[in-house]
Nucleic acid binder design. Sequence first.
DNA 1: ACATTTTCATTCGTACACAAGTGATAACCT
DNA 2: AGGTTATCACTTGTGTACGAATGAAAATGT
Lengths: 142, 142
Amino acid sequence: MSPNPSEGDYQVQGQIGFILRKANQRHVAIFASHISDLTPPQFAALAKLHDVGETSQNQLGNMIAMDAATVKGVIDRLAARGLVRLSKHEVDKRRLQVNLTDEGRRAIEELVPLAKAISDETLSPLSAKDAETLLQLLTKIS
Amino acid sequence: MSPNPSEGDYQVQGQIGFILRKANQRHVAIFASHISDLTPPQFAALAKLHDVGETSQNQLGNMIAMDAATVKGVIDRLAARGLVRLSKHEVDKRRLQVNLTDEGRRAIEELVPLAKAISDETLSPLSAKDAETLLQLLTKIS
DNA sequence: ACATTTTCATTCGTACACAAGTGATAACCT
DNA sequence: AGGTTATCACTTGTGTACGAATGAAAATGT
């Protein structure tokens, strides 16, 4: 029954959205098993800040694909833990500048090797070549 | 400076976790542009229910990769909108059985064609062959 | 039969993620 | 200059997502 392809052949588990969600879940779990005191978004914010130095909150958010409301929460939590410092921009009074503290800098520099291990473990079911292919294809749909 | 590969070459934006997160963001946005009155998890729950018929909340959660706390919220919202119906299992008094209502069945059957379009649009930057490859590789790391 | 362990569901707390609305400031433009 | 528009940050509300703790009921082991 139903050899009609527009009818009964839809399986959520095979859809790109579902698989993307699951892959993400697995990655977050691997991340947490290596770095338990920071979330992936928090880590991304620190790493990017280490990369570019002082920026405004919104600018940082743009760089790591977070909207203003989301980045605020992430930065507030990092600030509460003393990893970043906030200050008003001297010229543009709207802007809230974000900086790494010494502790934040130390933290991110220590964590980068772990982050590499996390990426490796996430991709460990694949050969090096397949991992490379996956990153390329995934980038295209991002 | 720093030709040392273990030092300065870490870029968050190139890591699998970051790209996965971004790809997911894009997919969710595409989903919302086609189906605005349901979220991807809600849709997954309805689709799976339509597939397997009556099940318990936890069982449904297992099938669509949601833990007990998450699936409860999703199902409660679907129930509040009359798309699913909850009832106690007659034998096993711990279980909460979940069923599609007629309205829920009508909804999911109408939405499946849209869901296919969503998957297609998400994968549209890729050739059919690359899309297939992506799904396979992604499944392996899920 | 009874105690131990599992399973099912719930609740609480924390953390993204984004839409929509607000207020303040800056940039632009005639 | 003065009005319009854009940008920056914040707030509220909704919806995942998961850890941890709880209580009820079922399954298991002896």
